[in-house]
């Protein structure tokens, strides 16, 4: 695990195999994905540990991450396989813990399970 934004968080895992386009598909207020083709369509990200391969899309998506945090609809933490500048900078400003998981760690994360993430002790 590589720490991008440090912190402690817990919550239920919400995992998708699809990348997430924050500007294009995540509602700034509700924190739900409004793209009906996405497998997380209409599911609130709030209080979850969001697990997804990587972010895609516009550089302004960083503001979307900050907005959902401000509107109290953000996930408690994010875990990715690859981190792009948009997700890294959005989580940094919003103080949402963010880590890059190794392939082995990533495979062990299952939808719906409870997870405690503590970047200070390096534990998932």
């Amino acid at each position: 695990m590589k720490v991008i934004v440090a912190g402690k968080a817990s919550g239920k895992i919400l995992k998708t195999s699809n990348p997430i386009n924050f500007l294009g598909t995540v509602d700034k207020k509700t924190g739900k994905i409004h793209d009906s083709k996405h497998d997380l369509y209409d599911i609130p990200l709030k209080d979850k540990i969001l697990v997804f391969p990587n972010g895609v899309g516009s550089s302004v998506g960083a503001y979307t991450i900050y907005s959902i945090k401000t509107n109290n609809s953000a996930p408690n933490a994010m875990i990715c396989k690859k981190v792009d500048l948009t997700v890294a900078s959005g989580c940094a400003l919003a103080n949402i813990p963010l880590v890059i998981a190794t392939d082995q760690e990533y495979e062990k994360l299952h939808n719906g399970e409870n997870l405690i993430l503590d970047t200070y002790s390096g534990k998932l």
Binding site: K2, V3, I4, L23, K28, K29, S58, S59, V60, A62, Y63, Y66, S67, T70, N71, V83, D84, L85, V87, A88, I100
Partner: peptide
């Protein structure tokens, strides 16, 4: 950290996105 950088370097010009109220909203 996300891009495995070893250090920061000086830059001469920044061009910003995030100007349209439609995209950045109230927050």
């Amino acid at each position: 950290e996300a891009t495995n950088a070893q250090k920061l370097i000086p830059i001469k010009w920044a061009h910003l996105s995030g100007v349209n109220y439609n995209t950045i909203g109230d927050a």
